[in-house]
Design a protein around this nucleic acid. Structure first.
Lengths: 220, 220
DNA sequence: GATGTTTCTGAAAATTTGTTCACCTGTCAA
DNA sequence: TTGACAGGTGAACAAATTTTCAGAAACATC
């Protein structure tokens, strides 16, 4: 893999940041403005180089259309212990998940560039459909779901989707997000905390949902 | 929230799918071709409607540039479900972790472009040092660690580091990676499976370690 | 059946954007 | 010194893309 020059790396980083924040790619002129080039051709040349080096794929003729390669870096440190990487059958396929940040009342403030903080990539579970690009990550506080093995300090990945009976959802209660299991019973909808010490079922008429909890991450 | 018509929903879904698969937005003409409209203006009208209804934001004049609201699903019985994004105090900071793929004998082949399958970003635990760039992710097979609450199908993030007594490590045994707890006892080193049905302690003389398991990800 | 709304056609205009061409400038090795 | 090369300027061109305008067809509503 041919190494990137400083400017090429900077442009690549800018493109990553742009698509992570705004959700669409920058045009050549956007990049030109960012780096104060006097000519679009300066950017054009760099993009060609990035493509030649295999870290970027352009779609010829299409505007603001790229596919980007994952980051690759070099150095390894020497240690007392010998390390080996994972073998091929241990590979998990990953996909990207958007990670939303500052939110105004109501819908996430997609008009502000601060609306999306960064992106993360999470594993694709076998047989599961692709994750929506609107997924995001939340830190869990409290013990309302300990019986479902979701504990304080865990991180859950929230995805949009049609909530079904039994799903664990991120719901707004008293303007605060809580993780609850959704229960449909006799045509009515309840939220249930998976903790024996908490009241059984919370009836809800208007449900404000951030999404469905599909993945839990725990720090050992 | 005004409801979407069937076609509007279909177009929104197509846009979601397109950006999820190709990583860039479709142009109006792409949508036109997909739905076999005879005029671009048909699409244009629908996009206007989608924007008016608040599920899509267009960037005027810019090609293939949109911001999209999370999926808004319709009714769940009579309950009104509304979606909101995460609030600011729920934000978790993320950092990037390399995800190694095809491996030659020995160390992960970071020199080959095929050596790194993709990257993922995982949460920074409070108070923890930054993760090394040599970290990678593994799919867990088997039940050797169920008593440590690491189950078949989980994904663990492996990081390099000096293994201490009690750490959970990814170790090579008979040329196969296994997750074990590291035990130091009487100057000797053992590997212990966290499963009551498995033999107590495995003595090891030469230890080949892939890294330390620091994070577990579970699919709900 | 009249009426208003939504959806679509067809064509054209305006704008954005990628791409190309000619040429300049410094760096570095032969 | 010379030549190759990466990186840049400046201008122009061609293509892609959004946007606008006028009007037709479908369709539900009263």
């Amino acid at each position: 893999m041919e190494a990137l020059t400083k400017k090429q790396q900077a442009i690549l980083d800018y493109m990553r940041q742009h698509v992570a924040e705004l959700s669409y790619w920058p045009s050549i002129r956007d990049i030109q403005a960012k780096f104060r080039f006097a000519s679009t051709n300066a950017v054009f040349g760099h993009l060609q180089a990035l493509e030649r080096k295999g870290v970027l794929q352009r779609i010829p003729g299409a505007a603001r259309a790229y596919k980007i390669a994952p980051e690759v870096s070099a150095d390894l440190s020497e240690t007392v212990i010998r390390y080996e990487g994972p073998s091929e059958d241990q590979i998990v396929n990953f996909e990207e998940v958007k990670f939303a940040g500052a939110i105004a009342a109501g819908l996430p403030d997609y008009t502000e560039s601060s609306g999306v903080l960064s992106t993360m990539q999470v594993p694709i579970a076998e047989g599961s459909r692709r994750r929506s690009p609107q997924s995001f990550a939340l830190r869990v506080r409290g013990d309302s779901m300990i019986d479902a093995d979701i504990n304080d300090g865990d991180t859950v990945i929230i995805e949009p989707g049609q909530p079904k009976h039994g799903d664990i959802v991120a719901a707004l209660i008293d303007n605060e997000t809580t993780l609850k299991r959704l229960i449909k019973q006799g045509g009515k909808v309840f939220l249930k905390a998976e903790n024996k010490n908490y009241p059984d079922l919370i009836p809800v008429n208007e449900l404000v949902i951030q999404g469905l909890a599909k993945t839990v991450m725990r720090r050992i």
